[in-house]
């Protein structure tokens, strides 16, 4: 559904941000894009909704070349939530922020009304309906950004560092709704340094270093590779680390509950 074919991208300042990228993202999957600072993750994501076009090579989305379709028509199907909420929010009220994309992409007024109400309530923003987005806390701004994008019901959701500035309670809420959206058939792409957050989602993992894709695969396989972790400034999630150090052969647990059960079972207590 999303295909990168020999993609290179050179910034206006002459620096090559993407090198020979070949990548295929399948529909209805959760994907994680990881790697150290300044390694090209955000640049790659911006090629998916056509905000950036390859210097050479091609990006195909839903079978169409991004060089030949407008960003607007791609955005309807691919929603992107930026790392810095302040770069995204611009309307005078929370209500208008959510309505902006919806008005552009949806014509049926009943659907529009339903989706607006849904976005407002699902993200606990009802009480701020007439408040300026600038007055919200960092965590609330992030929720508003996601709500505004999900309101127009895109098929693909790209989240750039969604957990920065979120406390544990908000992170767990986010984990649940990402997993629910995926079950409803949406394709999710998450850029994040927060590997403990990604771990329970069991995403397909794409590791980048210096503009190149180093490896793609299951999170367990990627994070078992010591040499790769050293090269890419990544750290092993604690549950996988524990499983490897204890030399347990069965599939590592996704969360604490699974880990507790497994340990008790193996230990026969």
């Amino acid at each position: 559904m999303i295909e990168f074919k020999n993609v290179n991208y050179i910034h206006v300042n002459g620096i090559q941000a993407l090198k020979e990228i070949n990548l295929s993202i399948k529909p209805k999957t959760i994907n994680a894009l990881v790697g150290s600072n300044g390694t090209g993750k955000t640049t790659l994501a911006r090629h998916i909704n056509g905000l950036l076009k390859p210097t050479s090579g091609n990006v195909l989305v839903f079978g169409k070349n991004t060089k030949k379709i407008s960003v607007a028509s791609l955005s309807k199907r691919i929603g992107m939530v930026f790392q810095n909420s302040n770069h995204q929010l611009f309307a005078d009220t929370v209500k208008n922020e959510i309505l902006f994309g919806l008005n552009n992409f949806e014509t049926d007024s009943q659907i529009k009304k339903n989706r607006f109400e849904w976005a407002l309530n699902f993200f606990d923003l009802k009480k701020y309906e007439n408040t300026s987005p600038l007055k919200l806390s960092g965590g609330e701004k992030k929720r508003l950004c996601i709500a505004s994008v999900l309101a127009w019901n895109p098929e693909v959701l790209i989240l750039d560092e969604p957990t920065v500035g979120q406390d544990q309670v908000q992170k767990e809420k986010m984990l649940k709704f990402i997993s629910n959206l995926n079950k409803q058939g949406k394709t999710i792409i998450i850029i994040s340094h927060d590997l403990e957050f990604l771990w329970p989602l069991k995403p397909n993992t794409i590791v980048m270093a210096k503009g190149r894709i180093k490896k793609t695969g299951k999170m367990t396989d990627i994070f078992s590779d010591d040499e790769l972790l050293n090269q890419t400034c990544l750290m092993r999630p604690q549950l996988l680390d524990l499983w490897m150090k204890l030399n347990i052969k069965e599939e590592p647990p996704g969360d604490i509950t699974e880990a507790t059960d497994a340990i008790r079972r193996i230990n026969g207590s």
């Binding site: 549950l239 604490i256 880990a259």
Partner: peptide, 19 residues
């Protein structure tokens, strides 16, 4: 709201179940 490390949460859970 406090982000307790995963391993500490596991410890608390196991200790609770009489480990």
């Amino acid at each position: 709201e406090i982000g307790i490390p995963v391993i500490s949460r596991l410890y608390r859970n196991l200790a609770k179940s009489n480990y």
